[in-house]
């Protein structure tokens, strides 16, 4: 990466980026929010959730992986893309068992916050009600609720790249894909610690610290007053 300024457009607005920077990175700096789930600052881009899909010169690309280039025309806030993203979020909700009404992540959950931002009040697809998702509460300080996992791989990347532990990894394929831990038995048998970044980065209520649920009152949670992305939009000049 160098300091050469690259100029391009997002929804007709001139944006400046640096060589090697992603469209998402440049948009964030410019105060333009591109919705995301698997992307997380400080983790390598993964490009799996597709919520950040934009159109670059008419072609679909994930903004978290696509580098900026001189003169490209990026579409972000269009009816087509909003509908596309809304469908992805809708599908994530019905694929797992997401019960916001009693989930302790409510108010701090990025999936829920995206749904609110997109005006989703009820899923449009039929619930799948998967019955094979278990809860691993064997660890004394952390538990995994697979019912709520959206397979974003933030924990996989954070454990590997930030914690240097490789506690989490994917196993299985297609509909059978799930997060597993690097032990023969349970989370308690890994070297995961409650202070690990892998615990902190989960966007939903899948990996949680124990004994602290609901300690933040309603009204003081992350997304109680401002929609997700407001912090980025505050950067707008």
């Amino acid at each position: 990466m160098n300091d050469t300024t690259i100029t391009f457009e997002i929804d007709g607005i001139e944006v400046h980026g640096r060589e090697g920077q992603t469209i998402m990175g440049a948009a964030d700096t410019a105060g333009i929010y591109i919705p995301r789930l698997c992307a997380f600052e400080g983790l390598p881009a993964f490009g799996s959730c597709r919520v950040c899909t934009v159109k670059v010169n008419g072609r679909f690309q994930s903004a978290c992986t696509q580098p900026v280039a001189e003169g490209i025309m990026v579409e972000n806030d269009t009816d087509e893309l909003l509908e596309f993203r809304r469908n992805i979020i809708d599908m994530l909700f019905v694929e797992g068992n997401h019960y916001c009404m009693f989930c302790e992540k409510s108010g701090n959950c990025e999936l829920q916050a995206l749904a609110y931002r997109f005006g989703i009040t009820a899923p449009k697809y039929p619930y799948m009600f998967p019955a094979d998702r278990n809860v691993d509460a064997s660890h004394k300080d952390v538990f995994i609720d697979h019912n709520r996992c959206i397979l974003c791989a933030r924990c996989v990347r954070a454990s590997r790249d930030l914690d240097g532990k490789n506690v989490f990894q994917f196993v299985g394929r297609g509909p059978g894909k799930r997060i597993a831990v690097n032990s023969r038995a349970n989370l308690a048998d890994t070297d995961l610690e409650v202070t690990d970044k892998a615990v902190e980065v989960c966007p939903v209520g899948a990996i949680l610290r124990k004994h602290v649920g609901y300690t933040v009152p309603i009204g003081q949670r992350t997304y109680d007053h401002e929609p997700i992305g407001s912090d980025i939009e505050a950067n707008k000049q």
């Binding site: 009404m101 009693f102 302790e104 809860v135 509460a137 538990f143 124990k210 004994h211 602290v212 649920g213 609901y214």
Partner: peptide
């Protein structure tokens, strides 16, 4: 059953 205990006051009130 199977849910963490701190969830009970919020879940069961439903």
């Amino acid at each position: 059953q199977g849910r963490p205990y701190w969830e009970a006051p919020v879940l069961v009130q439903r």
